[in-house]
Amino acid sequence: MSIGIERVEYVLHLADNALILGQRLGEWCGHGPVLEQDIAMTNIALDYIGRARMLYQYAAGICSPESTEDQLAFMRNEWEYRNLLLVERPNGDFAHTVARQFFLEAFQMDYFKALQHSGDATLSAIAEKSIKETAYHFKWASEWVIRLGDGTEISHHRMQEAVDALWPFTGELFCEAPCESWMRKSFDCPDPAAMRSGWSARLQSVFAAAGLEIPTGNWMQEGGKTGRHTEHMGYILAEMQYMQRAYPGMEW
């Protein structure tokens, strides 16, 4: 049976996005600006870790007989991860975390709806589960973009600063990696470039309500989808993988 290395890559791309963002959001646990938002971010983190688990289980099943969910999540090296550079950006202040979430959720709103109609039954089922969660996450992020953007002078300034800082990492959302193109042709998976108009429309309406400016820079960073990461990735993995590296095969 041909498993298709592209399919494994593609599933890992989605899984790594979910795991790394879940890990980043989890870093807020106990450090949120207020209790309710601490709980919100860790709830969202939990959704992402749950999604990552479903995807790693699927990837492990089609990858090789010896691979497992834990091995894929915890035992690979930086260059083997396929997540977007955007999700590995540090939490920064609360505004950075909100901007990172907003940019990604605005993309995923259409992406999972399209993926639900793909010819890969497992991915379609996972996408179906993810649609409603994404709607809640997008709503949370949008409300904070507006509240901070349309808030005090300081909150407005910091929200705009966060948006500007993360802007160069949004271009990668729409670049089609070889595995995505293969999955599009073979299983009718979404073309990320086709998400741009919906994404831009969401930005326009939320940023208008927030009184924020959409950056205009065209220079974009990319590489995460093919395993070229920023220096932050190594630090994330060092913390996240410590237990499995020190005690291989350990379980809670």
Binding site: E36, I39, A40, N43, Y136, K139
Partner: peptide, 13 residues
């Protein structure tokens, strides 16, 4: 509403 995310994934506060 106080928060869309409550004490568990299924609840809002």
């Amino acid at each position: 509403v106080i928060s869309e995310f409550g004490s568990t994934a299924c609840k809002a506060l």
